[in-house]
Design a protein around this nucleic acid. Structure first.
Length: 514
RNA sequence: GGUCCGUUCGUCUAGGGGUUAGGACACCAGAUUUUCAUUCUGGUAACAGGGGUUCGAUUCCCCUACGGACUACCA
């Protein structure tokens, strides 16, 4: 019988969760949804020195924003609680001791200085990889080299110690990765990893295996940086007697910097001109602020869609996927093997697609928010109209206000290039007639306004192309924008007349230059 | 340095022993438009290199190069 799929995302609360982490969470979530399994979040806070206040909450809010729902977590509980490793502390020692009793682990009493000295010694002896291993452990202070009663005495005296895994000297360890196939590693290249630290906390290696086992995790999907230690984890499953229920592994390709030089790291932040965090984050220690995708104006759906395609694709031509569609189509097999460079332009394109797919009434909300901030009254209906006209030319919600302010505020300045090129006495003459006759229109709308303008132009023997740019300048101050007649309809008759009058007065210097 | 992983247009990728090597983003050009944008049409552009295996290799194998990850009582 197939086990229920149970996947976990296991971040460490050491700062803001960066997009690589979000993608890992997303792939886990997608597999859970696809298979009807469970998505678990476990906080890996075994390193008390690296605790960062607010980081855990940040993780929670980030996932929420992305729409990644958790079936079990520290916040909504679950049958395998607690979901914070710090709260699971009492559970780990017994497994470490089991390993010691079975001869697969041992106590070590070496101080930091002694370890350092050992590495120095090996380096001086031109050893390629100085490590605590099957050879060097014989020269160190541990329960394998020391007399039993001395070890006992030390332990009873409360002397600091760690428990290390006794990695076999010569053994080929095989690991099946869902993305990469069989990976073979020789045990001699693995060192005797610390399992229990001297502060009584387990290391990642032990905690992760114990928790994954107890939480009945079936698939471990994590970043490629874990691949080198995966064989060690296989060894642990074996020694703990859990090999038959060992989860399947999938090591995700890394997210690289846009230049391909190294993995995208938290430090890269805004240095590269785009956010690396889902949400805005302020470091509580340094006060340093990093921008987030949410604040930059990315819609969560677009962000998720973009992220999903960084290393995965459905094998079809379809690019726009809702979370539901992603969950339906997702398979681990279709995840690529090679590192993925980060391309912010694609993210922006996704955002535009999602923005344009939204109904005008919803887009109006973005505009209304900005208008409120500027103390400008506006009906929902008008905002929706403006949004409808602008949606093809914006990338982010905040662009609506940025690009369409002239719908609400008369221009203060006029684009100088257009003014000097298009503003002349001839068009001013037309505008005079135009604004004088505007009050005669019975039903004021884009069509009727255009009709009036056309009539006047004919009367003056001119073509529409000769004045349009100048008229746009008068009404909006800008050189480009949506259909001018639509703009005029929205801002209304009085405002249009006023703006034309203002422009004629302010731009008189250009009118004589003809 | 050692171990491991990787390498198809600039980027994300599809494909896979015989293809005009496909798509998307970006870029360029044309069409449309009152402008910009959108839209439409078209275009530039890739199998890292060398050896094998084979009638045939971009595809399979090996080597090299390059890139990356790891190499802590961090995760």
């Amino acid at each position: 019988m197939e086990r229920e799929v149970r996947v976990r995302f296991a971040p460490s609360p050491t700062g803001a969760l960066h997009i690589g982490g979000v993608r890992t969470a997303l792939y886990n979530y997608l597999l859970a949804r696809k298979t009807g399994g469970k998505m678990i979040l476990r906080i890996e806070d075994t390193d008390q020195n690296r605790f960062v206040p607010g980081a855990e909450d940040y993780i929670r809010r980030s996932l929420e924003w992305c729409g990644i729902e958790l079936d079990e977590s520290p916040w909504n509980g679950g049958p395998y609680a607690p979901y914070r490793q710090s709260e699971r502390k009492p559970m780990y020692m017994q497994y470490a001791l089991q390993l010691v009793n079975d001869g697969h682990a041992y106590y070590a009493f070496d101080t930091a200085e002694e370890l350092e000295a050992m590495r120095e010694r090996l380096k001086a002896a031109k050893v390629a990889t100085p490590q605590y291993n099957a050879i060097t452990r014989a020269t160190m202070r541990n329960s394998l080299t020391m007399p039993e009663d001395e070890v006992k005495k030390l332990l009873e005296s409360g002397a600091p110690y760690v428990i290390r895994l006794k990695v076999p000297r010569k053994e080929e360890i095989r690991l099946k990765d869902m993305i990469r196939g069989w990976v073979m590693v020789h045990s001699s290249s693995i060192d005797d990893k610390v399992l229990m630290k001297s502060d009584g906390m387990p290391t990642y290696h032990l905690a992760n295996i114990v928790d994954d086992h107890l939480m009945k995790i079936t698939h471990v999907i994590r970043g490629e940086e874990w691949l080198p230690s995966a064989p060690l984890h296989v060894l642990l499953y074996r020694y703990l007697g859990w090999e038959d229920t060992m989860p399947e592994f999938a090591h995700l390709p890394l997210l690289l910097k846009p230049d391909g030089n190294g993995k995208l790291s938290k430090r890269d932040g805004d240095k590269l001109g785009f956010p690396v965090f889902p949400l805005h984050w302020q470091d509580p220690f340094t006060g340093e602020i990093s921008s987030g995708y949410r604040e930059a104006g990315y819609l969560p759906d677009a962000f998720v869609n973009f992220l999903a395609f960084l290393g995965w694709n459905p094998g079809t031509q379809q690019e726009i996927f809702s979370m539901q569609e992603l969950a339906n189509e997702f398979t681990v097999e279709r995840i690529g093997k090679s590192g993925t460079r980060f391309d912010i332009q694609k993210a922006r394109w996704f955002n535009e697609q999602y923005l344009r797919a939204k109904p005008d009434s919803e887009l109006a909300g973005y505009l209304l928010t900005a208008l409120e901030e500027h103390n400008i009254d506006c009906t929902h209906e008008k905002a929706a109209k403006v949004a409808g006209l602008m949606k093809e030319r914006v990338s982010f919600p905040q662009d609506f206000w940025k690009e369409a302010a002239y719908f609400f505020v008369a221009p203060e300045e006029y684009n100088e290039k257009v003014a000097s090129k298009k503003w002349n006495a001839q068009s001013v003459a037309v505008f005079e007639q135009f604004k004088n006759e505007l009050p005669t229109i019975a039903d004021f709308n884009a069509d009727s306004v255009k009709e009036l303008l056309t009539t006047i132009l004919e009367r003056n023997g001119m073509k529409i192309g000769q004045v349009m740019q100048a008229l746009r300048l008068a009404v909006t101050g800008a050189e480009a924008g949506p259909d001018l007649m639509q703009i005029i309809e929205i801002i209304g008759r009085e405002e249009t007349i006023a703006r034309i009058e203002t422009a004629i007065a302010k731009l008189s210097q250009y009118a004589t230059a003809e």
